[in-house]
């Protein structure tokens, strides 16, 4: 419950305060968000499986974000930034879908 509240507070603060972000980070923010969403869905699935561990969640969340950002950064340096971003989004999307399917099976038993 506290976790859900944290998410809501983050969204509200972001909408109300509207903070600016450094220009250098602008290309990485969308990918980082998708990676974080992947970690969140993985965390929900682990919780439903009864194997949730906060240390694992923190590490997977941060490493997902950092690795996704690194991949995009590397792609930009190699001149294939947009293609690599698309690839990362596709892979993370697939993972999100499979996690969502597992969650769905738990919640709806179907």
């Amino acid at each position: 419950m506290i976790a859900v509240l944290g998410l809501v507070i983050g969204v509200v603060v972001g909408l109300v305060v509207q903070p600016g972000i450094p220009t250098g980070l602008v290309p990485y923010l969308p990918i980082a968000i998708v990676a974080a969403l992947d970690a969140v869905f993985g965390g929900i699935r682990a919780m439903l499986d009864g194997i949730f561990d906060d240390k694992v969640f923190v590490v997977s969340f941060l490493s997902n974000v950092v690795v996704a950002g690194l991949i995009v950064f590397l792609g930009d340096q190699l001149g294939v930034g947009s293609q690599l971003s698309t690839g990362v989004v596709v892979v993370l999307g697939i993972r999100i879908f499979s996690n969502a399917a597992a969650i769905r099976r738990h919640v709806f038993r179907a």
Binding site: I2, G10, V13, Q18
Partner: peptide, 29 residues
């Protein structure tokens, strides 16, 4: 989800989700 407990895992996850929501809001806007 219920009842809310102020345990360490809940707080840590809440912090991470807070940053996620912040980034989401900024990006969408």
């Amino acid at each position: 989800l219920w009842p809310p407990r102020l345990s360490r895992p809940q707080v840590v996850v809440a912090l991470l989700l807070c940053s996620l929501g912040l980034g989401l809001a900024i990006q969408v806007r």
